[in-house]
Amino acid sequence: MSSLQDKVIVVTGGSRGIGEAIVRHCAAAGAKVHFTYRSSSANADTIVANLAAKNLSAVSHKCDVASPDDVQALIETVVKAEGAIHGLVNNAGITRDGLVMRMKDEDWDAVIDTNLKSAFTASRAVARPMMKQRNGRIVNIGSIVGQTGNAGQVNYSASKAGLIGLTKSLAKELASRNILVNCVAPGYVATDMTDKLTEEQTQAFEKNIPMQRSATPEEVATVVAFFLSDASGYVTGQVLNVDGGLAA
């Protein structure tokens, strides 16, 4: 396991799914984790309590990442409490699927604001403290559909494709200050988000995956931890697909 001993790491959308796995994995690797949740306060409490029982550190923050003010306040709170911030994982994401002819403006805006704009506002907020430290890691959680597209997901896939551009630009902008920015793009992962699909849809999807199964959230979290750790000291601006070979 890549060590994250005493590193202060913020994970957006950390109470469920891939985010929860990232929170748990980072805490187990020794990090001081701060994570946001929007509505799942019971889940957030359980995660904090589970980790505390193992003497691991996680703090939950109720935060709507679509609100730039909330995001700025969150980062300021963490930096004030911990005196540093080493890693940011822009993970918070939602879906509002629908075919384009029927997709409402609100469905587009909600997905772009939560999935893409939040990564911009959070990255902007951490840029200064990380620049002062001359050290930092930002990991954006993309999706394979940001590269392949997916019928019914013009909003979601556009937000995830947008994260790739953001990753590469930010990497170039901040590299001289030793702030490394990468994107982890999962394929099909078993979470609440994909539970919405029917058994039939899931089987059809998995048939197309060379590894013929979906990923566990932990299999994504370990890759995220690599990018947060000192093990990846010369990698920036990259997109790493964790997709069982789907887009290979």
């Binding site: 200064r128 620049m131 902008e173 901040l174 001289s176 200050r177």
Partner: peptide, 11 residues
């Protein structure tokens, strides 16, 4: 100063 430094100075 580089471009990032000048932005930080202004801030």
């Amino acid at each position: 100063a580089d471009s990032l430094d000048t932005v930080e100075l202004i801030m």
